[in-house]
Structures are given as C-alpha cells and as structure tokens.
C-alpha cells in the first residue's frame, strides 16, 4: 500500500499534476506580465496548457542521423528530474513530500539535469543551430551553476543545515534578503540564466541560432522540455522565496512571495537586450561569483564571531 501512496504522491500531490499545472500558470503570468510591460494584451490564461496539449498531439519528427533512444529519452529524463526535485521543496507553502539532511544538494543536482539534458539533446541532433545551441547551453550552465550554488550555500551556512525544510524554517525568522542582498540578486538572476530567459537567452537566441538546442524537436519531446522549464520556474521561485523572503509556511504567503519574485523576473526580461554568450560568462564569473564569494566569506566570519 505504501508504494501506491508514493506513486500517488509523485503523480498527484505535491509533485506531478499540481506542479505541472502550477508551472503552466506561472508561465502564463510571466508571459502576461512581459506582454503588459511591452504594451500588449498578452495570451489568455489557458494559453500554456493549450500549447502543451497541442504539442503532445502533434507529429514528432525524428531527424535523420540521431540516436533515437537519446532523442526520445532525454526529454523524459529532464522532466522526471525536475519533478523529482519538486518532492524536496516547500511547494505551495506546504511541507515537502520528502525531506532528509542534504536534500538541498540533491535538488540542485536534479534541477541541473534539465539543462544538461537539453544540452545533450541539442548535441545529439546533427543540426548546426542545435549544436551551437548545445555548446552555448552547456557554457552557460558552467558559468551560472557555481554562483547559483553559492547563493544557496549562504542561507545554508547561516541556518547550519543542508536540509531545505530546516533552512526554510530558519528563514521564517530571518529575512535573509536584508542580510544577504547580493546572494538574493545573484540567485534571482541565476534562475533566469538557468531558465534561459532574456537577457540570458543566448542559448536559444532566435535571431542567431533559430531555437538553439531545441531547433529539431517537435511534438512530444518539445512539449516535455517546455513543461520541464515551467516546473523548474516554479521550483526555482519557491527555493528563492523560501531562502531569502522569510520562508514559506502557508499557501497565501507562497503565492504572494513567488508572484513578487515573478514580477521582478518579468521586469528584468523586458528591460534588457540579450547578452552575448561571452558577456554572460564574463558577468557570472567576474561579477556574480566574486560578489557572492565575498558575501559568503563575510557571512562565515560573522557567524564565527557571533558563535
């Protein structure tokens, strides 16, 4: 019976359908906000859902010369990865389905799976745009991953735990946004880099490399990757809200905090021109990583002094 419960937990709640629905809703809010900022009306509320259903019902073209197992398998692995990550975060302000000490590391690893998979998917197809897109995806992965990790390390250190729920509980009493502002900003921008949102969308820059790594994907595979991105968006927002915005303990707080973050993300998307990949890498390593490292050192020193 326990197995059935676990399967239900994965499929229905809190991961599974609810997460996916949440992801789609957040994609809609994001698109709507960007459209509003661009003085447009924007899509209807069910737009992301219609997009996904349509893609699922569409023919999936297998390009010539690709490894079909990888081609079909990677999207599934990517989505499975982020859905599993959803088990460990306090989604909707509820306690995570699973929790153990060190689950933060697992969650971060699982979140990177999506990017890794899309990079591999691009490298697997012979298309030139996909190949360049894959190179850029992986380059970007290696540039934001370290600073992003460091930004989650900061709250972990002050909370003295690697368990998401414990950090969440600690953050409930401390708004780390004020004590670690650099970490907060870098984490938010790191999330945008992870999701390849403008201005960090060089890996899928439409005007240069069509759709980057995803150029050859149609139908189901493309739908799963998109869905994965949506889920990653909601998980990323949850993590940042939990760590930096005073923790998550109830659905209302979750909504308010993550939507506030989403508003910031949408604003940043609308505000800037796309960065070149070399500029992105430079920004992360020169500014992002160094600043976060400096703050981290300060945090450790402060913690040592107060202890």
């Amino acid at each position: 019976m326990d197995i059935v419960k676990d399967i239900l937990a994965i499929l229905i709640f809190p991961a599974g359908l609810a997460v996916m629905a949440g992801g789609l809703a957040y994609e809609w809010i994001d698109r709507k906000l960007v459209a509003q900022l661009q003085n447009r009306i924007g899509p209807r509320w069910f737009q992301p859902a219609a997009d996904i259903v349509k893609l699922l019902a569409k023919e999936e073209v297998l390009p010539e010369g690709v490894d079909s197992r990888l081609f079909y398998g990677l999207p599934v692995v990517a989505l499975a990865g982020v859905l599993t990550a959803a088990l460990y975060v306090p989604l909707f302000g509820l306690a995570p389905a699973h929790s153990f000490s060190g689950d933060l590391i697992v969650a971060i690893y699982l979140l990177s799976m999506l990017t890794l998979c899309s990079g591999l998917a691009g490298a697997n197809t012979n298309d030139r745009f996909s190949l360049i897109g894959a190179t850029r995806t992986l380059t970007q992965l290696f540039s934001y991953e370290a600073p992003f990790l460091l930004t989650l390390l900061g709250p972990a250190i002050v909370a003295g735990s690697w368990q998401i729920s414990e950090i969440n509980a600690y953050a409930g009493g401390h708004w780390l946004l004020f004590t670690q502002p650099v970490g907060f900003v870098v984490a938010l921008i790191g999330l945008m880099g992870k999701l390849e949102l403008p201005p960090f969308d060089a890996p899928e820059a439409e005007t240069e490399i069509v759709a980057g790594a995803m150029t050859e994907y149609s139908g189901r595979g493309w739908a799963l990757f998109r869905l994965g991105k949506n889920v990653e968006l909601i998980i990323g927002l949850t993590l940042i809200a939990a760590f930096y915005l005073g923790g998550l303990s109830d659905p209302l707080g979750f909504l308010l905090k993550t939507l506030a973050l989403l508003l910031a993300v949408a604003g940043l998307q609308a505000l800037f021109a796309r960065l070149r990949i070399d500029q992105t890498v430079g920004l992360w390593w020169r500014a992002g990583a160094l600043l976060v490292l400096a703050q981290l050192l300060a945090t450790i020193v402060l913690k040592g002094m107060t202890a």
Binding site: N39, P198, A270, L271, A273
Partner: peptide, 16 residues
C-alpha cells in the same frame, strides 16, 4: 534591429 539584439521591448515600442 532591437529584435536582433534580443531587445523585444524596444521592438514592440518602436513598432507601436
């Protein structure tokens, strides 16, 4: 050209 630069907001505004 703003669109080429990935600056869609400028694209939208100038076309508006």
């Amino acid at each position: 050209s703003a669109h080429e630069a990935g600056f869609d907001t400028l694209f939208m505004f100038s076309w508006r």
